Simulated assay, not measured.
Amino acid sequence: MNKFQLSISLSFLMLFGLTENILAQNKNSAKKESIKKEMIGQVGGEDVFQYTLQNKTGMQVQLITYGAAITNIVTPDKDGKMSSVVLGFDSLSQYASNDNSLMGSTVGRVANRISDKKFTLDGKEFTLSSDIHGGVNGFDKRVWKAREISKKNDPAVEMTYLSKDGEEGFPGNLSVSVTFTLKNNNDLVIDYKATTDKATPLVLTNHTYFNLSGGKETKALNTELTVFADQFLEFKDGSMPTGKILNVKQTPFDFTSPKMIGKEIEKVQQYTNGYDVTFVLRNQTGKLSLAAKAYEPLSGRELEVYTTEPGVVFYSGNWLSEKVKGRNNVPYTKNGAFCLETMHYPNSINTPAFPNTVLRPNEIFTSQTIYKFLVRK
């Protein structure tokens, strides 16, 4: 058994989705900010904890220390009905299995792609375990440490991980923290911070899959998407960027005004399996700015994504399979959810023209992303 195989206590093989039954039992109770912590099992002999954050409106967010992952987000629709708006699993064993397509995970040390699994930094070449998402055992497959932190009336959890020098082929001992804060205006704020003792590339993101219908739609193709970007990264097979930046106009990648995800997806599917594209955001200042909006007409839910990052990857759930069953034993479906991954551009370490992704000793990396949940009546 390797250290990433499971050792899970049967007593904790419980559903960790926030079901509508639980919500119904509590709907008449007074809402207040809270954090609940419980141990849900082990991975590789390490205890894994689940945190449930609730704000005074009744919105709830669940997190687990395996992969520093968002496992559930429960928000109201236009009629006030609470339901989950993200994909997830019922058990820790599923999160730690090959069925898990980075569900809600924190992704690093370098999210997305690095060509040929190699890069050269300060004259030295490094070879990685994989060309994608931080390696074979990236941050999404690690058990993080966590602690509750005090942020006025906003429940928050800080998760930390030490990525050791040489892990997955990357240089330097990298200390990473990700803080999740649930605010009373239904903002979920994600703050990233990192330091290193050797120069290393760093690209962090969160890989949550959204379906804003709350279970009313099995696919997310009717969701209207707006991305505040006039350019995107040209890519080749496997979604690897070529290094060229193209204009979105007169392409199926034009989401400068609201457009259903499914409207032009067949044009993209002529040469790839769907949308998996990096947008070059209009805001390149490093200051927090609106990056994207998604609106689901059936539920009335709207998601706004703010970030300090220069790019956002839009992924249309192209590889979700009905062979895999998610929360409440419901099979996934292709295009059944979408991701909006705020981040620096893929393969930046091998593309000098792209914004810098190298973190050096005595520097502090910081980044913030906000998922704001709204309702249109």
Rank of each mutant, 00 (worst) to 15 (best):
S7G: 02
M14K: 13
T19M: 05
N21S: 14
K27C: 03
S29V: 05
A30P: 11
I35P: 02
K36Q: 15
E38M: 10
E38G: 00
Q50T: 00
L53I: 04
Q54D: 02
G58Y: 03
V61N: 07
Y66P: 08
G67S: 11
G67H: 07
A68Y: 01
A68H: 04
A68N: 11
T71R: 04
V74M: 14
D79W: 06
D90A: 04
S91D: 11
Y95T: 01
A96G: 15
N98S: 13
S101T: 13
G104R: 14
A111E: 02
K117D: 12
F119E: 08
F119W: 07
L128P: 00
L128S: 06
S130E: 13
H133G: 01
G134Y: 02
F139E: 12
W144Y: 06
K145F: 06
R147Y: 09
I149D: 03
K151A: 07
K152N: 14
N153Y: 05
D154V: 02
P155M: 02
Y161E: 07
G166M: 10
G169R: 04
F170T: 11
N173T: 08
L174G: 07
S175A: 12
S175I: 01
V176G: 08
K183F: 01
N186R: 12
I190P: 02
K193P: 00
T196V: 12
D197P: 12
A199M: 00
A199I: 10
L202D: 08
N206I: 00
G215H: 07
L221W: 10
L225N: 03
L225G: 09
L225E: 06
D230K: 12
F232A: 01
E234Y: 03
K244Y: 13
I245G: 00
L246C: 06
N247Q: 15
V248F: 13
V248N: 04
S257V: 15
I261M: 15
I261F: 04
E266K: 14
Q270I: 11
Y275N: 09
K287Y: 07
A291Q: 09
E296K: 07
L298F: 03
G300T: 02
E304G: 00
T307L: 08
V313D: 08
G317R: 03
W319S: 14
L320H: 05
K323Q: 13
V324E: 10
G326E: 08
N329M: 01
Y332V: 03
T333V: 14
T333Q: 15
G336D: 03
E341R: 08
T342V: 07
T342G: 06
Y345V: 05
Y345A: 01
P352Q: 11
P352T: 02
A353W: 06
A353G: 03
N356W: 05
N356S: 13
T357Q: 04
N362R: 13
Y371A: 02
K377E: 14
